[in-house]
Amino acid sequence: MSSAAPAALFTADRGATLSPHSYPDVSYEEKLRLWDEVKADIRFPTYLYGCYECGICVAACPSARFYDFSPRKIAQAAGREDVELIFEQMNDDVWNCSQCFSCNRCPRENSPGGLITILREVAVNNGLASSKEALEGYSRIVYKIMTTGTQVSPDMLQADAFPDWGPGVVDVSDNLDLWRRALPPETLHTTSMSWHVGKETLTELYLIWHYSGVMDMIAEIDEGLHMIIIDVMEETLEDAGYDIEL
């Protein structure tokens, strides 16, 4: 983040797109509204300068080798403010990104991975069907991280969850309780969390989720999940003496 942000990009009009309209059911105004939301993010100015199509980002990108995915095209579409193409990418492409930030090698200091982080957030915030699809099967993880403050607990190591990790997973899940007790660090003596997180700590975590508006995002992708998490949070906050409407 070295040089000053560039002058404001021109306001896009329908004629700025060079792309065919691949999602004709969604209005241009709606696509433009989503793009404006992306640009309003505080991080946006330092994630996008200009692109001279050097291809360094694609060369370094692991997803580009496996998927029909190009961080260069993400930066180009954003630089052109091609609202049609950006909306297409927000639905079809952004979930391919590995978020490794190899693309931060960009000599213009763009961050295509960073742009994608914002694009995904906007997609989730606005309940795009493609984001719900991408996060299918992921809700148990969201539940775990939001309610316990750790993302993957030992009791998630089940053979049916990670069949491709080999027979070792079966050994682990069969012996889980004993093997966790056979760990010298005291904080690791748990199977439902990665380590013991204190109750007060969880209270503080829930307050952070609440005050930063994250619960609204969860409600957009999965209402059922949202309800379960709110229940857990409300109980803990009540116990801690907080009278907050979640």
């Binding site: 199509e53 050097c54 694609v58 580009a64 260069r72």
Partner: peptide, 12 residues
């Protein structure tokens, strides 16, 4: 050497 052949649109 590793780069992108941008004309062909793929890593090389």
């Amino acid at each position: 050497i590793r780069g992108e052949d941008t004309t062909m649109g793929r890593p090389m």
